[in-house]
């Protein structure tokens, strides 16, 4: 399963990178979301996958009964999902405000808005 997932993650990264390289800021935001998915799945698979129980301790026991899934990447991903969302919210509002102020969502055109000295 890890091998199939490895190929799928590569495909998601490809899609994300491709979106980043396009000119539209909408595509840019899409690309960031796709990169977030790809990275989370990467964290998920990198230490092996198990079709196992969730890492929960049964009531009254001291430790979970094996086999159980690795809890550490799950904790990381939980944090990552939330942070990606925070980042995305800021990015989207920024794109929106930029579009209002400048009237374009084209990153190449935004470059033309810089004063000459900073170009």
């Amino acid at each position: 399963m890890e091998r199939y997932l490895a190929l799928s993650i590569g495909a998601l990264f490809t899609a994300g990178f491709y979106c980043l390289l396009r000119r539209s800021t909408v595509r840019l935001a899409l690309g960031i979301v796709l990169l977030g998915h790809a990275t989370n799945l990467l964290l998920f698979t990198v230490n092996g996958l198990q079709r196992a129980r969730p890492p929960l301790v049964p009531e009254g026991a001291e430790a979970p009964t094996p086999p159980f899934a690795d809890p550490l990447p799950q904790a990381f991903i939980l944090t990552a999902i939330v942070i990606t969302f925070g980042l995305l919210a800021l990015l989207l509002v920024l794109v929106h405000r930029t579009e209002q102020a400048v009237g374009t969502d084209d990153t190449q055109a935004l470059r033309a808005e810089l004063p000459d000295s900073e170009r």
């Binding site: 490895a6 590569g10 990264f13 490809t14 899609a15 990178f17 491709y18 390289l21 990467l42």
Partner: peptide, 12 residues
């Protein structure tokens, strides 16, 4: 994009 994505798959 394909090249970098492919390399990441390979590493994974």
């Amino acid at each position: 994009a394909l090249a970098v994505g492919g390399l990441l798959s390979w590493a994974l």
